[in-house]
């Protein structure tokens, strides 16, 4: 019997390229469950991705899929959404992809509040190139390019997106997989720029070097370190040190870019006097 989410997958492209224990498959699973939940129109949906392990997820899904250049997924997606606002656009990026080489596009997509749903697979490392530190690698971690330890502070990506203008911001983990499906569904339903950061495990290129154990231990680490939005409210900054907050972190309202542009077209065509 066909699983109800299987229709969203290009099963002929499986098995995937990810290592045993990688969390990316869990994120992919949460995505297709979210598609099922929202009754997604595959023909009218585009999934754009950047470069890295996570970005291979696009190719496994049966949609209009666009695997772009490193860091530029949001820029390609902006062109798509702008050209055809009626199309639903999801954007898959990794932490290095979205926060380092693509950081500029991230803040500007957020600032425009363009209706894209960005899902950032945060495994805290450059996995595909073998374990170099990213802007989301916690300070003090070991990476191939930080053999002593990383000395750079890491971004709080949802916070960065929020202050840049994103109107839906959330964080989930691969441990809390059911919650992740809900966050993706809510992010997709939200009109405007949505960002969902997903803490996921890279046992091979991050966990191993940082003595975090195997895939199971890394999932347990997520469970231990994650604090729900509700619980975080009653905790002091000291208590939250080293933890990360999960759930719906921010939901706001602002004009959506393509809708505003449509009104500008009406004005340019003399159909409306509205500013």
């Amino acid at each position: 019997m066909q699983n109800s989410v299987e229709k969203y997958l290009r099963t002929e492209k499986l098995p995937h390229i990810w290592c045993a224990g990688c969390g990316n498959g869990i994120v992919l699973g949460a995505m297709v469950r979210a598609f099922e939940k929202m009754g997604c129109n595959q023909n009218n949906t585009v999934i754009v991705s950047g470069i890295g392990c996570s970005s291979r997820a696009a190719g496994y899904m049966d949609f209009n899929t666009l695997h772009t250049t490193h860091g530029r997924a949001l820029a390609f997606a902006t062109g798509i959404k702008m050209a055809k606002p009626g199309i639903d656009v999801f954007v898959i990026m990794g932490d290095g992809d979205a926060a380092s080489i693509g950081g500029n596009h991230l803040i500007h997509a957020a600032r425009r509040n363009i209706d894209l749903t960005a899902i950032i697979f945060n495994n805290q490392i450059y996995g595909m190139t073998g374990g170099q530190y990213s802007p989301l690698t916690p300070p003090g971690s070991i990476a191939t390019t930080a053999p002593y330890h990383t000395i750079e502070r890491n971004f709080d990506l949802p916070e960065l997106a929020r202050v840049a203008g994103a109107t839906y911001v959330a964080r989930g983990t691969t441990y809390h997989a059911a919650m992740l499906t809900n966050l993706i569904t809510a992010g997709a339903a939200h009109k405007g720029f949505s960002l969902i950061e997903v803490v996921t495990a890279c046992p091979v290129s991050f966990g191993r070097r940082n003595k975090m154990g195997g895939a199971y231990d890394m999932l347990m680490w997520q469970k231990k370190q994650a604090v729900s939005v509700e619980k975080a409210k009653s905790m002091t900054p000291e208590e939250l040190q080293g933890k990360f907050v999960i759930g719906e972190l921010y939901k706001g309202a602002a004009p959506e870019y393509t809708e505003v542009y449509d009104r500008l077209i009406e004005k340019a065509q003399g159909k409306s006097e509205e500013e």
Partner: peptide, 16 residues
């Protein structure tokens, strides 16, 4: 926001 994203957006728009 820059030249790189301009080229990217152009490709995205053409694709639709």
């Amino acid at each position: 926001e820059d030249e790189i994203s301009s080229m990217a957006a152009v490709i995205g728009a053409s694709l639709v």
